[in-house]
Design a protein around this nucleic acid. Structure first.
Lengths: 316, 316
DNA sequence: TTGAAAGCGCTAACAG
DNA sequence: CTGTTAGCGCTTTCAA
């Protein structure tokens, strides 16, 4: 395939002139510019992006680290990132970890190997101490709040939102509630949920917390587990509308009425929640993704809180 | 940052030797290999991937062209691609077009500029004639069937599935049905839907086809439109479970019973469809994505048909 | 087994 | 305004 030298020869100019034309450098006479451009068109030439990036030390590629890519919550953030990246001519690489710390570290190493200008971490599986050193090689933005001054973040106030959800249930007369989470206590989000629960309801019965919930099936399983304990919960806060939908589904089979027998709150305002009329806490994850992208390309270390909202529907 | 020369100097060997160690070339004495490795570790060196790719003429990056990234159907295919890519050490770039032909062409140009080894097209907005020339620069795989011998494809038999869905409705006693589509007749999928409809039901009343449907809101709008025509349809085949969910939602507000007053079939077996108990045609899009990826990395031009399945639930 | 040297395709001083 | 030249960081002959 033709390269810049071929174009230069054929146009009777030096490679610098071709490069200047390519990069819209003003210091090129109109005649030469036209000549070069016509050769470029004629030979259907496209510069090699690897060579350009190598010398410019910039790729305009940004990576999005996410545990799962078939998860509505993370897909929303990815969607936000893509919204902005397309506008601004950046390319996005999807980096799924399945919460494997080693995989995550390999992805961060892409900053060091110059494949990526920046990385957005939607959810992490390593302690910050292992992650922050990579800021030497590129920008790291988090979708979770962190004190670390070298990490920008676009985050939601998870704790406040959890407290609000539980309070909503308490105000409806529930003395206690159950809840589901994705991971166990290794996860910050889970820890915050527990803390918020205790703040609102006091002591937590261990059997009222079901972890490892990601989709509808997990919700069904959780409901099965929760609704057959000796002290049946009257309300449940699910970590996502799909999980909530699974719980809802189980109640129908068990002849239980929502919200009378069981109140349900989901998260992230997903289609299934809209369809089923589930009350939900929308953390506005698309906005989180958009802001994270902005921070990334501006190499900003700002901390931006994205306000959440509670959408009350028929399930509470 | 340290480069291969620094390592070579510090280890007292030539860059070739370092390169050999890096690439596990067997022709390196154990002593030198150890020396080089220890310098690499000590200096925390990582090779520059751009330089490597530039010279190897391969990136192990593959692009996935999709109209929208916040659409369950395309996300399923992307998910399939990611499943395999992670296993095999490839990186995936998400390339959303919003069905803009120019944007799509720019993405294909990434093959030419050596940013990408292959491109998977989940849905296209240009005629094949404009796309196939790019096979000169890299592999192109399609998730839609095409005759073009230079294009591999992992596809579903859309037409057959549409015929089956309409036939299911006809067998239930419906004399005609309405349906929704994403795009208009510029889209192959829409054309096939119409053709399948006519095959099963004969003439199509123009007001029974609503296009531009992507999500729940579009479904509500479509239902509104369809259920207020003078000859109200008794069944509708939606192009996705979210759209179907919107239609379902509208029927509740309108005091109509599903399936007695209106039968509904969706597509892609999405969470909202499971939650609502919607009959659906599952095109197994995750599998489509997985196969597409395999074709891409093997530079294969095979044509693989992925079997669909109909999941009957309570909405028909 | 090892190293020198010639690139890969491009950008950017620098000198003119 | 234009061309020469020195790289960017790596792989890979080729000869030793």
């Amino acid at each position: 395939m033709a390269n810049i030298n071929d174009i230069a020869k054929r146009a009777g100019v030096s490679v610098s002139t071709v490069s200047r034309v390519l990069n819209n450098n003003p210091y090129v006479s109109e005649s030469k510019r036209a000549a070069v451009q016509s050769v470029i068109d004629e030979m259907d030439y496209t510069p090699n992006r690897l060579a350009v990036d190598l010398i410019r030390k910039e790729t305009r590629n940004i990576g999005v680290i996410m545990p799962y890519n078939n998860n509505q919550a993370f897909d929303q953030m990815l969607h936000g990132v893509l919204n902005r990246s397309v506008e601004l001519g950046y390319t996005v690489m999807v980096l799924p970890t399945k919460y494997n710390p080693e995989t995550e570290l390999n992805y961060l190493n892409m900053l060091k190997s110059k494949q990526l200008d920046a990385v957005i971490i939607t959810s992490r599986s390593n302690p910050w101490e292992l992650l922050t050193p990579f800021t030497k090689y590129g920008t790291i933005v988090s979708c979770e709040y962190t004190e670390h001054p070298e990490i920008g973040c676009a985050y939601m106030n998870r704790y406040a939102s959890f407290v609000e959800a539980f309070t909503l249930l308490k105000d409806k007369g529930h003395i206690r509630a159950a809840f589901t989470t994705a991971r166990g206590e290794e996860s910050n989000s889970t820890k915050l949920t527990i803390k918020a629960y205790q703040h609102v309801f006091g002591d937590l019965l261990p059997e009222y917390h079901v972890s490892n919930c990601y989709n509808i099936d997990d919700g069904v399983r959780a409901a099965q587990q929760l609704l057959t304990t000796h002290l049946r919960p009257t309300a449940v806060y699910a970590n996502g509308d799909e999980v909530a939908a699974g719980i809802y589904q189980y109640t129908r089979g068990a002849q239980l009425l929502v919200p009378d027998d069981l109140a349900i709150i989901g998260q992230e305002n997903q289609p299934v929640g809209i369809g089923l009329g589930l009350t939900t806490v929308d953390h506005r994850l698309v906005q989180v993704g958009e802001h994270a992208f902005n921070l990334a390309i501006h190499k900003s270390t700002d901390k931006i809180e994205i306000p959440y909202r509670v959408i009350v529907r028929q399930s509470t």
